[in-house]
Design a protein around this nucleic acid. Structure first.
Lengths: 128, 128
DNA sequence: ATAAACCTTCCTATTATTGGAAGGTCAAGA
DNA sequence: TCTTGACCTTCCAATAATAGGAAGGTTTAT
């Protein structure tokens, strides 16, 4: 199957698939006589794996590791688990930060009239 | 005051201050005879404003608007408020997404032995 | 005078993705 | 067969926000 087809099936667009190949996230595709990339079921499988990992917020660097582990039948499940646990911690940290932002902003917005008057507690707070 | 001093006071490093100037986030600094950027109290005030806005997660595009509104004494507070409210909604959306990721990942990690065995539910799930 | 600290501009890198330009290939219809 | 449209190729540039270095000029203090 050509790259366009693989893109449709995996949900990663053709441009990005080429890019992933170029930075070594996925193995180099074999080429047809005309130089077109050709994808097998397995290849598409890997692409879907990448897509799903991205949806779970793994960085491309992490995904590169995950794909490596996935393709290596002898890896230890602890390697994968520690990667996942570290990732969970990072996300939870980010959530806390964002929640703090929301709290502050909501407070500011509540105290702002939001009318035609030029005075605005939001700006005044940002100022200080 | 020179850029290094302004950087210390505002908490934005010199490199970044120059960059902010170059992309129009802050007004162009006046120069000394030797070409050094010179900052007044007001200038540092603006820099601190930018810093604080960044900490609250506003994008540089939004901050550009905020700085504009802040420097305009006749702006309506509703303009600021709607910007803030939109921003709050965006952050809350992101929080929900991240929480969903954490939920899925925690479930996967819980079902993974995390030992030397090669089988790993995390990878198996990513696969499908 | 000289060294340390500071300033200048310009270029590069990062992360993940998208876009375009210029050109080659394939499949189907006239 | 010729042409058209859809698809493919590579390379180059852009996005957002920040960081880092190189090469060189300036200020300050010893």
């Amino acid at each position: 199957m050509n790259i366009g087809q693989a893109a449709k099936v995996s949900g990663i667009n053709a441009k990005l698939i080429r890019h992933y190949e170029s930075i070594g996230i996925i193995p180099r595709a074999i080429r047809s006589e005309a130089g077109y990339r050709t994808y097998s079921e397995t290849d598409v499988h890997i692409l879907s794996f990448v897509k799903r990992s991205r949806n779970l917020g793994f960085s491309m660097k992490e995904i590169k590791k995950l794909v490596g582990l996935w393709r290596n039948k002898n890896r230890a499940s602890s390697d994968v688990k520690s990667l996942a646990v570290k990732h969970i911690e990072e996300i939870e940290m980010k959530v806390l930060e964002l929640q703090a932002m929301v709290k502050t902003l909501k407070h500011l917005a509540k105290t702002c009239h939001g009318d035609h008057r030029p005075d605005c507690p939001i700006l005044e707070n940002l100022e200080s």
